Amino acid sequence: MTLGLGAVGDLDNERRLRILGVIDKLRELGISENVSLPQLVVVGDQSIASDLCTRFATQIVLRRTPANEAEVRVTIIPGPDAQGDEETLDGLLGFSETLSAEEFDSDIF
């Protein structure tokens, strides 16, 4: 399905925002383990020319917000291998970084 630019505004309405909020809450509760929830998946090749690469699954949640409230929040969701080591699990669960939109640039990324 292709949407014209005028139709993009139709996607940003109270009902849709409410539905996206419910989907986020269900995902936070772990419902996505048993029920397929809508998601966006981005897949690409590893760059061999770069010093950086992603070696783990990355979940990105995008939410529309007023510009003065925009931020980037980074947390870690431990995988099954971390469950046996309480110290590692606590360290991963305790990791949290929040940056304002102004602080988040390509160097930080």
Results as ranks from 00 to 15, higher is better:
R16I: 13
K25N: 04
R18T: 04
Q46Y: 09
E71W: 02
S36M: 12
D90G: 10
D85N: 11
E28Y: 01
I60K: 02
L17S: 03
L89M: 03
A70V: 03
E33M: 02
S32H: 14
V61T: 13
I48P: 03
I19M: 05
N13E: 08
T88A: 13
Q59R: 15
E33W: 14
S32W: 11
N13T: 10
G84N: 10
R16N: 12
G44E: 13
N68S: 15
D10E: 05
T88G: 01
D45G: 08
N34E: 09
T54S: 14
R73E: 04
A67C: 01
T88W: 08
V74R: 15
L52Y: 08
V22E: 05
Q83M: 01
V72T: 03
D12A: 06
V8K: 04
P66A: 06
R18A: 08
G44A: 14
T65Q: 04
D85K: 14
V22R: 07
L20F: 02
D85F: 07
E86L: 09
V72H: 05
F56I: 00
R55Q: 15
D24T: 04
V43L: 10
L62S: 12
G9C: 13
D45S: 15
I77G: 00
E33T: 10
D12G: 06
T75F: 09
L89A: 02
G9W: 14
L62V: 12
I23Y: 01
I48N: 11
S32R: 08
F56R: 15
E87K: 13
V61N: 14
A57P: 11
D24F: 09
A57L: 14
V35D: 01
D90F: 14
N68Y: 15
V8Y: 06
I31Y: 07
L62Q: 07
S32I: 07
R73H: 02
L52Q: 04
E87L: 03
C53P: 00
I48F: 06
D81F: 12
A49Q: 07
S47R: 09
I23Q: 01
S50A: 06
L62A: 07
T65N: 02
A70M: 09
A70R: 10
G79K: 13
V35H: 13
E14H: 06
R73K: 08
I19G: 01
A49M: 11
G21C: 12
V72N: 10
V35M: 15
V74S: 13
V22D: 00
G91P: 00
L11Y: 13
S47W: 01
G84C: 06
L26S: 00
I23G: 00
A49E: 03
G21F: 05
S36R: 14
K25I: 07
A82R: 11
T75P: 07
R16D: 07
D24W: 09
R18C: 05
G21S: 08
P66K: 13
R18P: 01
G30M: 04
A67S: 09
Q83Y: 09
A82E: 05
Q83R: 12
A57I: 08
R63Q: 12
V72W: 09
T58N: 08
P38Y: 13
P78R: 11
S47P: 00
R15Y: 04
S50N: 01
D10R: 03
N34C: 10
V61D: 11
A67K: 02
V72G: 00
G79T: 12
I23E: 01
L11W: 14
D51S: 09
L37I: 03
A70Y: 05
R15E: 09
